[in-house]
Design a protein around this nucleic acid. Structure first.
Length: 435
RNA sequence: UCCGGGCUGGGGUAAUGGUUAUCCUUCAGGCUUGUGGAGCCUGAGACGCGGAUUCGAUUUCCGCGCCCGGACCCA
């Protein structure tokens, strides 16, 4: 049979084995988020297109799945969470106690060309904190992220957070010349590691720096000692940024996350969205070339959306790059089905079998039984294919002596258990309990 | 939007301008209403879509779609 309908480019199906692995990753991320007191929010798949135009400009529309609905509204599938949660904060600002700490895991959509680790429909877990400008709030986001990754099985050997501050670049550029196109220069910095050195200087010069300034600028960015910056200039924006970054790093020390953080001044994170701390997570081994995910502080967005001035900091963990990182580190969850029990029927034993099945399910176990009228051999083959740990054979022969047979599928050994005490009131009965 | 490489049963593959498209695996059933991961038997299942050239196209050419990777972009 030929395929009637092809996939939509960049959209993926997840079958049970792979979905099980994804579910386990999501559960881990969310479990850690809950420990930090982040609360889950639910958000719509559609927003008014204007929400994104206001934040990112008219050009953004071509990156969106946007359309006019039957009521004439211009809508778009959400390409990211931040505008939505910002809108939510503005809508109920007075009612919400601060800090507002939220998380959510859900799909987003962008009309882009798929590449490694990038799809048109992709999943993110977003963590945001609104209402605190204290460095501890930034540090808590970093600490959460570090805890989540280590809980997934990664170690500090496998990832690093490159941390910077937006005003370090901005302040530094201010000291050179008022005419520098800061956004353009920052975009150049973001490419620094990807392009030729001369091309990088060219980009800096295009943004308004002289050759000599470009060289000085580059040298200062390479410094891992923040005091080199403050001794170069006493520009207030710059020195404030250095002070703030130091405070954030000191707080990560307190939360036990400092060891994962590296000062990396060429971490810029795209356009002028962020206002303070910015950070990206990278694969230390270099196998995943793009950043795994990123976050930072955006203190002005709530006000821009019509709310009271409200500082904010957050991170978005993209599941597609995260799964690349986990796979290459060898800690991606196993993609196989598991089943606690298969209850095998032989002859007309469905009544008794169903009772056992429902009792085991009542104990919280995953239990399957025959729903196809299959033969003994076929049922055994099916039990094997779903990775059943234990098979309970409910056969006419067993019932004649008021017993069931319990078979351990790993070893192949089997024994019998009395029908009137199986299954017990609690626990997870196996072959070993009756051998 | 642009560039490169792909596309043959569910997965992996072979061959071919002309008869019934190869093999492995998988799936379903059976040998086997009382034993799965071994074997045997039977069955199911494919040339991505459209157009052109041709007596004839899965094969050649063009367009499109999808997949993989890259550029741009990365909120």
């Amino acid at each position: 049979m030929s395929r009637m309908y092809e996939n939509i480019k960049g959209f993926r199906d997840f079958y049970p084995e792979g979905m099980g692995a994804r579910r386990s990753v999501i559960d881990t991320l969310e479990r850690v988020a809950r420990r930090y007191g982040f609360r889950e929010v639910g958000t719509p798949a559609l927003e008014r297109t204007q929400l994104y135009i206001d934040k990112s400009g008219e050009e953004i529309v071509e990156e969106l799945y946007s359309f006019t609905d039957q009521g004439g509204r211009e809508l778009a599938l959400t390409p990211e969470l931040t505008p939505t949660v910002a809108r939510m904060v503005v809508a109920k600002q007075q009612a919400l106690t601060k800090p507002i700490k939220w998380f959510s895991t859900r799909p987003f959509w962008r009309y882009e060309e798929p590449q490694q680790g990038r799809f048109r429909e992709f999943y993110q877990t977003n963590i945001d904190c609104f209402g605190s400008s204290d460095p501890a709030a930034d540090a808590e986001i970093l600490a959460f992220t570090a805890d989540a990754l280590t809980e997934l099985g990664l170690t500090g050997e496998e990832f690093e957070f490159r941390v910077s501050h937006r005003d370090i670049l901005g302040g530094l550029l201010e000291t050179f010349d008022a005419d520098v196109d800061v956004a353009r220069a920052i975009r150049a910095v973001d490419k620094r590691e990807k392009i030729e050195r001369t091309a990088y200087y060219d980009l800096l010069v295009e943004s308004g720096l002289t050759d000599a300034q470009a060289r000085t600028f580059d040298e200062l960015l390479s410094a891992d000692d923040l005091s080199e910056l403050t001794s170069f200039s006493d520009n207030e924006r710059l020195t404030d940024a250095v002070t703030n970054l130091r405070a954030v790093l000191a707080a990560t020390e307190d939360f036990g996350a400092r060891e994962y953080c590296t000062i990396s001044l060429d971490t810029a994170r795209g356009l002028d969205y962020y206002t303070g701390t910015v950070f990206e997570c990278f694969d230390s081994t270099g196998d995943v070339s793009r950043s795994v995910f990123g976050g930072g502080r955006y203190d002005e967005l709530i006000e821009e959306y019509g709310g009271q001035p409200t500082p904010a900091v957050g991170v978005a963990l993209g599941h597609s790059t995260l799964s690349l990182l986990l796979e290459r580190a060898g800690v991606w969850p196993e993609e196989s089905l598991t089943t606690d029990y298969y209850v095998l029927q032989v002859g007309e034993t469905r009544g008794v079998a169903a009772e056992i099945v429902q009792s085991l399910r009542g104990l919280g176990h995953t239990v399957e039984t025959d729903v196809s009228g299959r033969s003994f051999g076929a049922q055994m083959g099916y039990a094997d294919s779903i990775n059943a740990q234990t098979v309970i054979i409910v056969g006419e022969q067993d019932l004649e002596s008021d017993q069931v047979t319990i078979k351990d599928m790993q070893s192949g050994e089997q024994t019998t258990a009395p029908l009137d005490s199986f299954p017990p009131e609690q626990g997870r009965p196996t072959y070993d309990d009756y051998a």
